[in-house]
Amino acid sequence: MRICSTNLGIGGEQLLTIERASDEGLRAGAYAAMRIFNIDDKEVGACGNATRCMAYLLLEEAGKDELVMELAGDVVQCRIRAAPMEVSVTLGPISMDWRKIPLSREVDTTHLPIESGLLTDGVALYIGNPHALFFVDQLDKVDMGRYAPLVQSDPLFPEGANVGAAEIVDEKTLRLVVWERPGTLTKACGTGACVAAYAALNRGLVTSEKIAVHLPGGKLVIELLDGDKVRMTGPVAFCCHGFVEGGK
């Protein structure tokens, strides 16, 4: 995608668009709708950090502390927290149904039949996009560039998957790295943090329903809510602004 190319401008991992909410979204009180495109030109149904960034822009434009945004036919609750540039969004529900993720065949999604190096005994989850999450003893010893692509391209995932490796620090803290679709090691993955916290509680590896997830790009706080939904809170930062001109 040329707009995201670092050779032409600032570059980016995704392209986001702001659009008028659908009639259904408007009835639900949506201020606007967002669409998300990866650098391989494919539209995706969710991105946690992109949602927080867009939420901040819309909250600033509307002059509100709270609003509703439409994303992939669903509505997302967005809110400015105590800190001026800290935003929370409610995402989900999270599903572990193999058909929803989707997987190519029925398997136990709580213990995936896939191994790649130190990535073993994984969990498959869906939160608007597919994830394969693996718990590891020492995160720094996991070569994600070597092992994650083998999971991502496994025939079990017909649409690919975001591959995460998580280390349990204590009963309310995780460390996480994520190899995202279409094939990049990202410094931050909001939906990855959400499913990591959900899977950790599901396995009994943590006891708190409010979990700090530390990624290379910073910390997110994930609160597990009723109905398999999660509230993600984290900071946003302004980088730059400009215009995109048409051309060949």
Rank of each mutant, 00 (worst) to 15 (best):
C4K: 05
R231V: 08
L57C: 11
S5F: 09
L215P: 00
G160P: 02
V195W: 08
G246C: 07
A212L: 13
D121A: 15
E106D: 13
A62I: 03
T110V: 12
I222L: 13
H111I: 12
E180M: 01
S153C: 08
A30Y: 01
D40M: 02
L139M: 00
L15F: 13
L119N: 05
L71Y: 07
I127H: 12
D137M: 04
R146Q: 06
G11F: 10
A132D: 07
D74C: 10
D154M: 05
R20V: 05
P84Y: 11
G63L: 11
I222Y: 15
M144C: 03
H111C: 14
I39E: 12
L8G: 03
A50G: 15
D143E: 13
K172Q: 15
E245A: 05
R105Y: 14
K229F: 09
A196Q: 05
A196N: 05
R231E: 15
A62H: 04
V195H: 14
V178N: 04
V107H: 13
I114V: 13
A55V: 06
G11Q: 11
T186Q: 06
L8D: 11
P130I: 09
S104N: 10
L26R: 11
K219F: 06
T186I: 14
K219Q: 12
G9P: 07
V178H: 02
A165T: 00
M69V: 10
E86R: 01
M85R: 13
V142R: 03
N38F: 03
L91R: 01
P149M: 03
V142M: 00
K219N: 08
A237W: 05
I80K: 15
